[in-house]
Nucleic acid binder design. Sequence first.
DNA 1: GCTTGACCTTCCCATGTTGGCAAGGTTTAA
DNA 2: TTAAACCTTGCCAACATGGGAAGGTCAAGC
Lengths: 133, 133
Amino acid sequence: MMNIGKAATASGVSAKMIRYYESIGLLPAARRTDSGYRFYSDEDVHMLRFIRRARDLGFTVADIGELLALWRDQGRASAEVKRIALEHVAALERKIAELQGMAGTLRMLAEHCHGDARPDCPILEDLDAGGGR
Amino acid sequence: MMNIGKAATASGVSAKMIRYYESIGLLPAARRTDSGYRFYSDEDVHMLRFIRRARDLGFTVADIGELLALWRDQGRASAEVKRIALEHVAALERKIAELQGMAGTLRMLAEHCHGDARPDCPILEDLDAGGGR
DNA sequence: GCTTGACCTTCCCATGTTGGCAAGGTTTAA
DNA sequence: TTAAACCTTGCCAACATGGGAAGGTCAAGC
């Protein structure tokens, strides 16, 4: 049993975030000491690490709510977990493609820009003209 | 000369955003009619399209502030523009790498998940264990 | 036993960009 | 004259996170 600070260092989730997750219902309300301090078990820290890892993989808090429910449900079907994961992969890939498009365009523009003291600059010219759209 | 609604459709920037950009100082305060309506010139729409295009390329509003200043400065050095663009490309690429890492891990995990009615699922197991970290 | 510092509590605020809604004023067309 | 389509400002929401203030609690050292 430990304080929120200890649970935070043990799990890698800040105390601030632990309180936040509790407030939005991602975590059940923590037990409290008589004086009102939250306290946590190793089991709780385990759940916090789960959340931390899922955040690192880019899942939103809403996703994690679903994943946690499945995690706790011993009779879950793995198909559901896989669906959530693959949907997330697809979203990540859409985002990646979008960023790659931006980076590609900019890299191209920058290549044609002298990058010296002269004022003419294809980058600004493109922004000016709207990239031919 | 036109209303904000017209300027919005002409530039592709919503009226809401035009007001927002004005409020944060990205745009100078628009001129007003006697009754208080904002009005815009073709020149203004031109600037709005510049902003729109730069947003599409992923520049933050802060970046765009710099770019607009350079755009207006006829004596600017293109080196400065290029620097901003390349910094942004680097930021995009960092983000892309991060997302690719997430997507790669998840794709791998999903591949090893049966995705059927059985409860065992490598995805949850990884989240559980913390991916070996 | 008292003081001090390190913890905890709640509450409010800020980030960045965008949309939505409400209450009220203006303009335009029928 | 009236109705529709605009405009105005202001507030609220999202998402996840951090910062800070004001005040209560706990543990260690003296």
